[in-house]
Design a protein around this nucleic acid. Structure first.
Lengths: 211, 211
DNA sequence: CCATGATAGATAGTCCCGCTATCGGAAGTG
DNA sequence: CACTTCCGATAGCGGGACTATCTATCATGG
């Protein structure tokens, strides 16, 4: 197919498709002449992936490019790919000062130890979690931090399902996609499910309240 | 204190503080004359909240304003506040077409029923979850959707901790903050913890792999 | 076989967002 | 009284995600 058809099938405007190709999100089509190229359903699928990452996952174009590059890279062991997927989601915000961050990092490492997780201390995931813990502390929500283990336990259950799904994938390509999408869309999914569960439990708790 | 001190204590530049006041994120100080105002530690605390919402929570200024408005609103029952906090996190992206969204909504409502959750069908949380489910389906990750119940179970455990923390809050103001921050920072926290758990489990599974 | 319309590639422009810079006039401070 | 700080307002800036336009090409159908 040509660009016009790709556009109408995907719902993405032609100039935007060109933009994605310029930015390296979408591979170029198979050239048939100087100003003509063919696209196939891989392009269509890729476009859908891009829109999912941007719209549902809330990723920036630059981050989406990195994710896709990791997906395309042939030497991608699952463990390494997981690392790449992680990099993408980690916020690089520097909220709290160095001292608070150090304390928070120690706290997270303690938690990791309590959970029996084997994770290197310089993993970006540690830094990300520490950032949030530091923020919670600075805002005085210490009781929140006191329940870290509860949250960690739930996270462990989630990761178990994640990895199980990945393991069951028939092919490596599918595995890669499952890892990335499971993380990025999974975050959005979990946020939604958490809200749902909250609504239910909150209604039960405060059913005597207003409204 | 005056603006300069507020700025140095919070680490937020003076012009940015003024910008936040213009945008309604930060209440004005107590005016002492035509061009002088006093700020207190409530302003400092609020500034820290704002930075946490923006930097750690990844909210936009406009959404942060809505969150803060809900916090300030005096008539805020906890249940209602929870609803307000939810609105803020829901992505309004329209990824999939109407038909797919309808199917996905039905699927989510089924899940809600299986979990025994009592949630009205037009809750924004339902729409948010349905959006993700629709995206997963359109991308062909059906096995992911098959494990929805596992994720829902974990979400339920998380919500239980959330609500328990809220219930234990001594004052209403603290409750409101706990709800909002627990949701917004909690999402970031869970994402981090999930990555941590994944790293651990993935290392166990694929320890024979490269690196 | 040529007019018409779509296409590739390149460049420039647009809009929004989150600040940031500047300015005029007034107030505190040594 | 000089000097700094502050308020309020307006304007500007830099980045991100498109979007519009232009030219040279090519496919196609009457």
């Amino acid at each position: 197919m040509r660009v016009g058809e790709l556009s109408s099938l995907s719902g993405v405007p032609t100039p935007t498709i060109k933009y994605y190709m310029r930015e390296g999100l979408l591979p170029p089509g198979e050239r048939t002449s100087r100003n003509q190229a063919h696209y196939d359903d891989r392009h269509l699928r890729r476009l859908r992936l891009i829109r999912a990452l941007l719209d549902v996952g809330g990723l920036s174009v630059a981050v989406a490019r990195d994710v896709i590059a990791a997906l395309d890279s042939p030497d991608t062991g699952t463990h390494k790919l997981l690392g790449a997927a992680q990099q993408t989601v980690i916020r690089t915000a520097a909220y709290c000062d160095d001292e608070a961050r150090e304390d928070a990092t120690a706290e997270v490492l303690d938690l990791v130890h309590r959970q029996g997780w084997k994770v290197s201390a310089d993993s970006p995931a540690v830094a990300a979690a520490a950032e949030v813990v530091g923020a919670l502390r600075q805002l005085g929500l210490h009781d929140f931090v006191d329940r870290l283990d509860d949250y960690a336990h739930a996270a462990d259950a989630i990761a178990a399902t994640d990895l199980d799904l990945v393991r069951r994938r028939p092919d490596v390509d599918g595995m890669a996609e499952a890892v990335v999408l499971g993380n990025i869309l999974g975050d959005a999914l979990l946020a939604g499910l958490r809200r749902l569960a909250q609504v239910h439990r909150s209604a039960e708790l405060f059913s005597s309240g207003p409204e």
